[in-house]
Every structure is written in structure tokens, then in C-alpha cells.
Amino acid sequence: MASGSRQAVWEFFGTELKRRREDAGFTQVELAARVFVSGAYIGQFEQAIRKPQLDIAQRIDEVLQTDGIFERLCRKLIDDRRYAEYFAEVVELERVATRICEFAPTVVPGLLQTKDYAEAVTLAANPFVTDEYVADIVTARLERAHILKDAARPEYWVILHKNVLGVPVGGRREMAEQLDHIARLMRERTVWVTVMPYTAGAHASMTGDLRLMDFEDAPPVAYTETSFSGMLMDDPAVVKRAQRAYDLLRVAALSPKASLALIESAAEDHRRCASTT
């Protein structure tokens, strides 16, 4: 589904929610209390500023007795087989975020991946799939990165663990090109990337990726991911803890200048190895 038509369906979701809510005689606050969110959330759903999670859509159907219409709309919008089920909503939120802060301990984040790197990562996790499957996954990943080219692009802060720089994903030459791509985005001031060195030792997010997203008219969310699952969290107390963890990670990382030098040096090391093999 194209992004324009997807947004149109979310707007329909909001318009229909407002109509059904008013027909049932509920205010935003009254409906919110019954589906365990805030009144502001209901308003954001109705204005298509924020997209509800599937369980919230199901509770709305139950309270308003709408025969599953909001669950069906929600499933239609998040059912993009190019993304894992737990990641589909994160992709939607990326498109409206004003700031994205990410910690990547093992793999270059999807928004920064080159085509060759994305193909290698996809094949490593799915060695028996077709070329068409790989092409679909890689295309979806590269399409996500278009948000960094928009005039209204979000601030994008990334902390890479030094592990990420050393593993030659896709091969030495391909890894050099991947690191060159990151360095170019840094020099263009499109992204803000720092590197956590080995000397930092233990760090605040030892179990997997961490991502924070801020929005203009909605509360922030946190997202954590391991190899086979992910969790999107919007509980204010949990998000606050995740923000503190990210602050600790940022303090442990190298300066931007030192990080750029390290990334460029790692790229040269991969290139030199590629030329001798």
C-alpha cells in the first residue's frame, strides 16, 4: 500500500472513530477511560496524528460495539509482510516522528543500510528464501530511509557499538561502502552518529537494540528489539527509563569527531583487506 493511500485509510479510521464515538454518546475522555488510554490519545487517533495499536482498536470495537471495523482497519494498515508483525507499527511511527534516537549494538540500523548490506543481513537470517523475497525486504528497508531525504526529516541520533564497524557484513568491499555511506551522511549533517568503544565496558542496554521516538503532537514511545521479537512501549514511566538508558549510552560514546574518524578508519581497513584478497 502506498504511503499516500495508507495515510488516507488512517484518516478514515479517525473520522469513523469520531462518528461512532459521538453516535454512542461518549466524549473522548469517556471512551478513553473504557479502553485504558488518555483522552488526548483518542483525539490524536481521530486526527490521524497517532496510530492505535491493534489491542486498542479491538477494545474500541468492544466498547462501541462496532463489529470489528476498527480491528479490521488496523490489521489492513499494519499487515505489510515485508516487515515483522512486531515492527510494522514502528515503521508507521517513523514517518511522523520529529526525532529518532537509536542504539545499535550489533547491526547497522535499517535507516542507514546500503542495498548490499541489507541483502546480506536478510540472507543471513533467511538462507532458503527466493530472490524475490530478498528483493521485497531490501526494497522496503531502502524505502524507509527516504524519510532522511525529506525537508521535514526527523533528527536522527544513532549510537553504534564498535562491534558494528568490524564485522564485514556482505564482504570487505561491501562493508567499506556501508561505512562510507554512514560517514557521508554524517558529513552532510543528515544524521548524528557516535560510536561506543570497547573501553566503555558494560553499558545501559545489554540485551538488544533501543529506539526512542518523539512526535510533535503525541507522547514519546520506546522500542526495544532482540533477534526474534520487538516491543513498542508508550507507558510514560517505561519510556522515561528508556530515555535515561539512552542518556547513559550517549555519555559512554565517543565524540562525533572521534566517531567519524573511527568509522572512516574502519572503512579503510575493510577496503585494504578487500584489495589483498
Rank of each mutant, 00 (worst) to 15 (best):
M1L: 13
G4S: 15
S5M: 11
R6F: 06
V9C: 02
T15R: 13
R20H: 11
G25K: 03
V29A: 14
S38N: 09
G43H: 02
A48G: 02
K51S: 12
K51H: 14
D55K: 11
Q58D: 02
E71P: 01
C74G: 01
I78G: 00
D80E: 04
L93F: 14
E94D: 08
V96L: 10
C101G: 14
T106E: 15
V107P: 06
V107Q: 07
V107Y: 08
Q113L: 03
T114P: 01
K115A: 12
Y117C: 02
A118N: 06
D131L: 09
E132I: 05
A135H: 06
I137K: 07
T139R: 13
L148Q: 05
K149H: 14
D150T: 11
V158T: 14
V158N: 04
V169R: 05
R172Q: 15
R173C: 07
A176R: 07
Q178Y: 07
H181Y: 15
I182R: 14
R187V: 10
E188F: 05
V191C: 04
W192N: 15
V195D: 01
M196H: 05
S205N: 06
M206C: 04
L212D: 04
T224I: 15
T224R: 15
T224S: 12
S227I: 09
F228C: 06
M231Q: 14
A237K: 15
V238T: 12
V239H: 09
Q243T: 12
Q243D: 05
D247K: 14
L249W: 05
V251G: 10
V251N: 10
A253E: 00
S255D: 11
S259P: 03
I263S: 05
I263L: 06
S265F: 06
C273F: 03
